[in-house]
Amino acid sequence: MAGSKQPIALQGLKRCLVLLGNVELAVACLLVFAMIAMVAGEVFYRYVLASSLFWVEEGAMIAFIWITFLGAAVAAKAGRHIRIETFSSRLKGPRARLIWAGSAHLIVLLIAILLAFYSYGYVAIQSRTLTVSLPFNVPRSWMFAWPLFFGMCSIAATQFYYLMDIVVQKRRAADAGTPLLEV
């Protein structure tokens, strides 16, 4: 196992990220069931009880947006985001491949940090308007800026781990930068 060759600090980061990934996944799964219950419940109300639950649209939407950004964070940990393979298979030697993969991780890391920074900046503005139909009104930042901010912070941490894994183990490990989660 390459994991055993990792320095203690990197192993610790790995354990934290795996734990974080599992928590994100669990929360998102619960939101999937909540979404199904809400939307199906609305139809039940309409046809059986002849009234409508108008908070469902907003409630399900908040769940959906959180599922998306939590799911994006999990997908980063599982290495599942779609990319189009161009030159990597044609590169000669493990070193060139590691540099190639490492720079891709670095670029995604920078993009995630920038997005986390910018999304935090919108929290205040989006908090000025509230949701309208939920039983308790929620600032719209909980629908937009916060899920993006959280997802990007998690992805930034994940990319940082991949990058460090490659930098630290550049010579020995053939599996440096392998996905954190298997799902």
């Binding site: 998102a28 069931f33 959906f64 998306t68 994006a72």
Partner: peptide, 19 residues
């Protein structure tokens, strides 16, 4: 539960692309 996991991953990839 596994079905929900698959749903989260697919949504995390496809809906994220759309966003």
């Amino acid at each position: 539960w596994d079905c929900a996991v698959q749903t989260v991953l697919t949504t995390g990839v496809l809906a994220f692309l759309i966003a």
